[in-house]
Design a binder for these strands. Structure first.
Lengths: 183, 183
DNA sequence: AATTGACATGTCAAAACTGGAAGGTCTAGA
DNA sequence: TCTAGACCTTCCAGTTTTGACATGTCAATT
C-alpha cells in the first residue's frame, strides 16, 4: 500500500494540499517515482480522511478542499518509513519485449533496441535539463526531490547504455563469427 | 496487458509448456523483468485458451497440461512486439521512501541509504554470479535472456552507486559547509 | 456576452494483482 | 511401507489500478 503513503507524505511535507495539488505533483515531481491517476488520488484522500490520518483543514473557492495531516497521519508516515519493505515487484514492458525479441527478424530486433536507446537518451536529456532549470529551495522536499531526480537521470542513462550494448551484442551474433587471432 | 504476452511469449519460445513450467520461469528467468503469481499464470492460461491463442497439446502424468501456441497466438505475439508501447508506469517503493526521507532524522535517513546501497550491491553480485554460473545454450531464449540478465546487473549496480552518492550528498548537507578555498 | 481553459471534485465498472487455501500425483529414499 | 518433497492444477476473496464519464466554478480573452 504505497499510494496511501505517497499521498500522505506529500500532504505532510507540503503542510496542506488539495487533491488537485497532489495530482500535479504526481505528474511532475513523482513522475519517475510513483504514478497515480486522479481517481486514485481522490479515492485515497477519502480513505485517509475516514481513517483519521488527514483532515479537511479549509475549503477554498472552487470547491477546493485543503487537506492537512493529523498527528496520527504523521505518525503513520514515520512508521511506514522505518518499516521493513517487501521485495519490490519489478515489471518492465520494454525489457519484456527484449526478452521475446527473438521472435522478430534480427534487423527488427536491432532496430527496436536502437529506438529504445534513442528514447532513453531523450528522457535522460529531459531530466538533465530539468535539473539545470529548476531553482531549488532549501526545504526537505527540495533536497530529497533532487536526489530522486538525479536517480531518474542515472536510470535513463543506464538504460541508454544498456540498449546500445545489447544492440552491439546482437550485431556480434548476426555477423559471421571471426577468430580472435584473425585481422 | 503484458502478463498475457509474457505467458504467450514463453509458450511460443519453449514450443510447449505447462503452467508449472511457466511459474518456474517467472521465478527465475523473468524475475527481473516481469513478476507473476501462480494464480495469475493459471488464470491467464485459461483466458489465452478461451481466446484461441494457445491450446492444450498434450496431457501429462500428474494432471499436467502441455500448452502450445496456435497460429493466432504466434501472430498476436508478433503484433504485440511491433506495436507502439504506451509510457510505462514507473513505481518504486524504495525511491518513494527516499522522497520522504526528510521526515526522518538525518542519521536515520543516511542509514536507510547506506542499507539500500548494501542491498543493491548484494543483488548485483547475485546476478553477476548467475551470469558466470549458467551455461548458455544457443537458442533465442538464451541470447535474449542473457541481455536481460545483464540489464539486471547494471540496474543494481546503478542503484548502488546512486544510493552511495545520495548518502554522500546528505552528509554534505548535514556537515557545516566549508569554503572551496579552505583546507 | 460567449468561449476557452485552468481549477476542482466525485464516481464507477472492468481489469489486474495479491495471497492464500485446497487437493491430487508421482518418485526416491529412510 | 511410509513419507517427504517435488510436481501440478483449480479456485477465490479482497485489494489496487486503469480509464473513463460526469459535474461544476472561476478568470481571462475574444
Amino acid at each position: 500500500m504505497s499510494l496511501r503513503h505517497a499521498v500522505l507524505g506529500l500532504i505532510v511535507e507540503l503542510d496542506g494540499a488539495s487533491g488537485y495539488d497532489l495530482m500535479k505533483l504526481f505528474e511532475i515531481s513523482l513522475a519517475n517515482v510513483w504514478t497515480a491517476t486522479q481517481s486514485q488520488v481522490y479515492g485515497e484522500l477519502a480513505k485517509l480522511t475516514a481513517d483519521g490520518l488527514i483532515e479537511v483543514a479549509a475549503e477554498g473557492p472552487r470547491g477546493r478542499k485543503e487537506y492537512r495531516a493529523t498527528d496520527a497521519g504523521r505518525e503513520e508516515l514515520r512508521r511506514w518509513l522505518v518499516e521493513e519493505q517487501p521485495r519490490p515487484a519489478r515489471r518492465d514492458g520494454v525489457l519484456l519485449k527484449v526478452f521475446f525479441l527473438g521472435q522478430l527478424e534480427p534487423g527488427r530486433a536491432r532496430a527496436y533496441l536502437r529506438d529504445s536507446a534513442a528514447l532513453m537518451g531523450e528522457r535522460r536529456d529531459g531530466l538533465a535539463a530539468l535539473q539545470e532549470e529548476v531553482t531549488w529551495g532549501d526545504d526537505n522536499l527540495s533536497l530529497y526531490g533532487r536526489l530522486t531526480l538525479e536517480y531518474g537521470r542515472r536510470f535513463f542513462e543506464m538504460r541508454k547504455e544498456w540498449a546500445e550494448w545489447a544492440e552491439a551484442e546482437l550485431a556480434r551474433h548476426a555477423a559471421p563469427p571471426e577468430d580472435a587471432d584473425h585481422a
